[in-house]
Every structure is written in structure tokens, then in C-alpha cells.
Design a protein around this nucleic acid. Structure first.
Lengths: 207, 207
DNA sequence: ATTTAGAAACAGACCAGCTGGTTTTTCTGT
DNA sequence: ACAGAAAAACCAGCTGGTCTGTTTCTAAAT
């Protein structure tokens, strides 16, 4: 071979693991949890099944690791969008649009949905995922709390308002599976923006 | 046997079919789509696998029929709640509480979530379900439109407001799989009620 | 600087278990 | 007697985990 002669063991491992985790997420995205097989993941990763079992002893380890990485990526992306809103490049409307686009078009939401739904009927998987989700939500809420301020915190705090936004998006994304109705989504998004604008506004640099 | 001597053929068929459909929904609820098997359904229904294949040629037919029934049940329940709101027995707050409880504690939401998520990676299933979902949403929207009136339809129509409610509930129910945090849900529900109260109110009998 | 033993990474065959669909047989109602 | 309903055996296909063999790297010994 000419592309990568003499990689260190650590490099070989890291690359293979990375390929496998990415392939796992891709498989979840493309065919869903039920049809995601270890053989399919190995094929997608361009790696033998032996290599896969070497790095991840069983399917559960693969799924959990992939989820971990996936959650981290999404949270980081959201933090970046929030920073863009605080620091100027993104408008209030643009922020909502970007978050929604990220959920609907990114590979994050549907992959995590597959896993969450699978976890409902699988106590072991649930046990592994619950702490990951808690961390994720904490990162979300931390982001909201220093990116938005409430008009009247007595009624609706920034934290609650943005959690509502996320829940609306989750619900819409679930609907989108069987009904990708752009007009409906535009309408919902516009209403959501208008309604939340009454209760929260983004902080701006000087504040 | 003594419980049901001499049933007519039609009765026997109808009862077995009913048992199978109920068992299908129960299986989706209890173990999820991935672990729902035709054998498991027959066992839950207390019926032989032979009887199952006689009435439903394949798994798809069983799933689709069960979904059909399930959707109808849920829509009917929602229409009843809306009627109770219009005609007195249910308050504005009570209506929201009841819909949320129905979603979180009923067997409808999670069963349909299983199927919707499964449909994402299965074109045939998606084809069967899409029209059912369209019907369901139309029933919802019809219900909203003659149960609520908007304060200012220019900004948010009753239809849009109640769709937002449903989407928030969907999102919360997805979260609830891994994080059943009563306090969080109470907070969200209170905020949702407060926010929507600004934009819509229920119609009352005389109007 | 080479050699070489050992460990880690990787490849692929193998197998037991389960799933869904088909087929054959028995039973129940008309 | 006949047909629809129900039961149960059967089977081909796939899945995930294990097992065995091979290649690639590392580092100690020479």
C-alpha cells in the first residue's frame, strides 16, 4: 500500500474506531435501529467484522459509543449557533431557522430518535443512555441560560421557553417522517418565533 | 369450553382478529417494534400462530391494521376530550392535563412512535402509514378548529396553536423515555398553558 | 542496526438461536 | 359434505457472538 504506510498502532486503532462509530450513526440514519446489524456497520465502515468485534466486544458497546460521540457533536453545534446569536452573525429568526434545519436535515436527531425509541424496550440500553441524555440536556440548558433573557421570568424563564422550542422541534421532526409538509413547517416555525419573542430575547455582547 | 359455546363463524373471526390487533399494540408498547415478533403477538393474544397467519397473511398486514385501529381510538378519545371542554365538564387547564396524560400514560403515543420510527427505514411501511397519518391529522385539526378560537388569527390561528401543543407533547413524550422528570413536565405544561392562553380560548356552548 | 518474541489489530469462518412465511393437518360451524 | 377457522410442524434466511488464523506494529535482546 502507498496511502498510509507504517501507521502507529494507536493511529490504526483510532482510525478504525472512528470509521466504525461513523458507520454506526450512518446505519441508524439510513435503515434505522431494527435493521442496523453489526455486519452492516462493518461493511459501511469498510472494515472486517473481526476488526469490529476487536474494538467493540458487542453491539451494545458500539451503539453506546456512537451515541456518546453523536450527542457531543450535536451539543457542540448548538453551542456554536448560540454563540453566533450572541455575537452578531446570527439573527433571532436565523437562530431558530438554523436549529430547526440542524434537526431536520442533520443526521443527529433521527439517529438519536432511533436509539431512544429502541431504549424504551431495552432496560440495558436505557441504563447506558440515561446518563448521556442528562448530560446533553444540561449542556442545552446551560447554553440557553446564558444566551437568552426572559421578559418576565415569573411567567416563563428563558430555560423553559427554549426547552419548549426544542420540544416543538422534536415533535415536528417526528411528524416529518410521514409528512414532510414544508408549508406546515414554515407556518409552525413562524408561529413559534412570534410566540417566543414575547417571552424571551437574546442577550447581546455588551450586556 | 364453557365460556363461549357455539359462536358463529363471524364472531370467532372477529374475536380472534380483535385479540390479535390488541396484542400487537400491547407488544409494540411493551417491547417495541424491533422486538415485536409474530410469535410473540400470537402468544400475547392467546392464539396459535396458525390462526394469526390465517387472518393476517404477513406481519405488515398485522401492523398496519393494528395502527389503523389505534389511530382511530386515539382520535376518538381526543374528540371526546374536546367535547368535554366545549360542553363544560372540562376546564381549559383540565383539557391540557388530560391530553398530556393520555399521551404519556396511554398506550397510543408510544405504540405509534414505534411504528413511525420503524417506517423511516421501511419504504413499504411508510407507504401504508402515510395516508393513515394524514387522516389522523385532519381529524385533529377539525377538532381544534371547532373547539378553540384565536385571540388574533393574524398572528396565531387556533389550528396552529393546538398543533404546537401537540408537538410540544410529542417532544416531551420522547424525552420521557429516558428522563421521566415529573417536576420538569409540570413546569413545561404550566408554561405551555400560560403561553397558549394568550392566543386561544375554548369556545363555549352559547357561542 | 538486526533480529525476534510478543502483543495488538485485523480477517473471516463458524454456529446456535430466532424470525417470518409456508404447508399440512385438525377442528368447528353451516 | 363442505368451507372457513385454528393448530402445529417445518424450513430457509439472517443475526450476533465466538473461535481460529493472519498481518502489522513494538520493543527487548543481541
Amino acid at each position: 500500500m502507498s496511502t498510509s504506510e507504517r501507521r502507529t498502532q494507536e493511529q490504526r486503532s483510532a482510525e478504525t474506531r472512528k470509521l466504525l462509530l461513523a458507520a454506526t450513526v450512518r446505519s441508524l440514519m439510513e435503515v434505522g435501529y431494527a435493521k442496523t446489524t453489526t455486519a452492516g456497520i462493518a461493511r459501511r465502515a469498510g472494515v472486517s467484522r473481526g476488526a469490529q468485534t476487536h474494538h467493540f466486544p458487542d453491539k451494545m458497546a458500539l451503539i453506546v459509543s456512537a451515541t456518546e460521540e453523536m450527542f457531543d457533536n450535536f451539543a457542540t453545534g448548538l453551542e456554536r449557533l448560540a454563540a453566533d446569536l450572541r455575537e452578531g452573525p446570527l439573527t433571532y429568526d436565523g437562530f431558530f431557522d438554523a436549529v430547526w434545519a440542524d434537526i431536520l436535515e442533520g443526521e443527529w436527531f433521527y439517529s438519536s430518535l432511533e436509539i431512544i425509541v429502541a431504549a424504551r424496550g431495552d432496560a440495558e440500553l436505557r441504563g447506558h443512555l440515561a446518563p448521556l441524555i442528562l448530560d446533553l440536556h444540561e449542556r442545552f440548558e446551560l447554553t440557553w441560560s446564558h444566551t437568552f433573557v426572559a421578559a418576565d421570568p415569573q411567567i416563563v424563564t428563558a430555560r423553559v421557553a427554549l426547552n419548549l422550542m426544542m420540544n416543538v422541534f422534536r415533535g415536528m421532526a417526528v411528524q416529518a417522517v410521514l409528512r414532510r409538509d414544508e408549508e406546515y413547517f414554515r407556518e409552525m416555525l413562524a408561529a413559534l418565533k412570534a410566540i417566543l419573542a414575547i417571552h424571551v430575547r437574546p442577550v447581546r455582547p455588551g450586556e
